Computed example of a mutant assay.
Amino acid sequence: MFSDDDAAALYDLLNPWDPGRWPADAYYDGLVMAADTVLDVGCGTGAMLHRAREHGHTGRLVGLDPDRAALGRARLRTDVEWVEGTAADARWQGEFDLVTMVSHAFQCLVTDDDLRASLAAIHTALRPGGRFAFETRHPRARAWEEWNPANASEVVDATGRVLRVWYEVEAVVGDVVTFTGTTADDDGTVLRVDRTGLRFLDAVTLDAFLGDAGFAIEARYGDWHGGPVTDSSREIVTVARRG
Results as ranks from 00 to 15, higher is better:
145 E>V: 07
145 E>Q: 08
146 E>K: 04
146 E>H: 12
146 E>T: 11
146 E>N: 08
146 E>L: 10
147 W>P: 03
147 W>T: 01
147 W>A: 02
148 N>L: 11
148 N>F: 07
149 P>N: 01
149 P>K: 00
149 P>Y: 00
149 P>M: 00
150 A>V: 13
150 A>N: 13
151 N>K: 03
152 A>V: 12
152 A>L: 13
153 S>F: 15
153 S>L: 15
153 S>A: 15
154 E>N: 04
155 V>M: 02
155 V>R: 07
155 V>A: 01
155 V>E: 04
156 V>M: 12
157 D>V: 07
157 D>H: 06
159 T>K: 04
159 T>C: 06
159 T>G: 13
159 T>E: 15
159 T>I: 09
159 T>R: 07
160 G>P: 12
160 G>M: 07
161 R>S: 15
161 R>W: 12
162 V>Q: 12
162 V>R: 14
163 L>M: 08
163 L>T: 10
164 R>S: 05
165 V>D: 10
165 V>C: 11
165 V>I: 13
165 V>E: 13
166 W>C: 01
166 W>N: 01
167 Y>P: 00
168 E>I: 11
168 E>R: 13
168 E>T: 15
168 E>K: 08
169 V>F: 08
169 V>W: 04
169 V>N: 03
169 V>L: 03
170 E>D: 15
170 E>R: 14
171 A>V: 15
171 A>T: 15
171 A>L: 14
172 V>T: 14
172 V>F: 15
173 V>R: 12
173 V>A: 14
173 V>W: 09
173 V>P: 00
174 G>T: 11
174 G>I: 10
174 G>W: 12
174 G>V: 10
174 G>E: 11
175 D>Y: 10
176 V>P: 08
176 V>G: 03
176 V>Y: 04
177 V>D: 00
177 V>N: 00
178 T>G: 05
178 T>D: 10
178 T>M: 06
179 F>L: 08
179 F>K: 05
180 T>C: 07
180 T>D: 09
181 G>T: 15
181 G>W: 09
181 G>F: 09
181 G>S: 14
182 T>W: 03
184 A>T: 07
184 A>Y: 02
184 A>S: 09
185 D>P: 06
185 D>Q: 11
185 D>Y: 13
186 D>E: 12
187 D>S: 05
187 D>M: 02
187 D>H: 08
187 D>Y: 03
189 T>C: 08
189 T>G: 08
189 T>W: 08
190 V>N: 06
190 V>W: 03
190 V>Y: 04
191 L>Q: 05
191 L>W: 07
191 L>D: 07
191 L>F: 10
191 L>P: 11
192 R>K: 10
195 R>D: 02
196 T>C: 01
196 T>G: 00
197 G>Y: 05
197 G>M: 01
197 G>P: 04
198 L>I: 08
198 L>N: 03
198 L>R: 10
200 F>K: 00
200 F>E: 00
200 F>P: 02
201 L>H: 02
201 L>A: 01
201 L>N: 01
201 L>S: 03
202 D>Q: 00
202 D>E: 04
202 D>N: 05
202 D>M: 00
202 D>P: 02
202 D>T: 03
203 A>L: 13
204 V>Y: 03
